[in-house]
């Protein structure tokens, strides 16, 4: 156990002074490493794709490319985010397990800031108690005396897992019976 913790710390130490984008989901603050983020756009002009699980909000036209938008709140098993004036879509480059990159939009309530968080300020994730799946959390960062959950983007936006969930979703009737 101790060995695992030290390797993790060592791994974090390598990316010292990494930058993170913080954003709000309801009243909770989250952070994502900035390297996988391509851009942030205003929410709008979304086309709903029917028969998909609730966390897939739909698709948007990103300068000619059709990009799916994932509702992060719903992905955590909570209510769908309510759309407000401050709703944003964070475009992230996710990769499938076979190595193909795909852009995915992440619907969040408010984008806060880009912060430089020293590795020493990031704690390993708790094994339970964070109210979201433990494997979604990469670490707990301390910002202004409060904890911010740093997300493990590869897990949260795992295309393979999400498409499996889409298959199992009750609205995809045909697949269910096969």
């Amino acid at each position: 156990m101790g060995a695992i913790a030290t390797t993790r710390q060592a791994a974090i130490a390598v990316e010292e002074d990494a930058q993170y984008l913080t954003f709000m989901l309801g009243t909770e603050m989250f952070a994502i490493g900035i390297l996988c983020i391509k851009e942030i756009i205003e929410y709008g002009n979304l086309t709903v794709v029917p028969m998909m699980p609730a966390f897939v909000r739909g698709v948007i036209n990103l300068r000619g490319a059709v990009v799916p938008v994932v509702d992060l709140s719903a992905r955590f098993g909570r209510q769908n985010s309510a759309i407000t004036r401050r709703s944003c879509v964070v475009i992230i480059e996710a990769s499938t397990e076979d190595g193909h990159a795909q852009d995915i939009g992440l619907l969040v309530d408010t984008v806060s800031a880009v912060l430089e968080i020293p590795a020493s300020q990031i704690e390993p994730p708790p094994s339970f108690g964070a109210k979201i799946r433990a494997d979604f959390i990469s670490g707990m960062a301390k910002v202004d005396g409060k904890f911010v959950i740093v997300l493990e983007v590869d897990r949260v936006l795992s295309i393979d897992e999400m498409s499996q969930l889409a298959q199992a979703s009750p609205t995809a009737l045909e697949v269910e019976t096969q």
Binding site: M52, V56, V66, I159, M162
Partner: peptide
């Protein structure tokens, strides 16, 4: 435009 792998299970579209 293909919809991508995320929508692989989607029938009818």
């Amino acid at each position: 435009k293909p919809l991508g792998k995320l929508f692989g299970a989607l029938r009818g579209i």
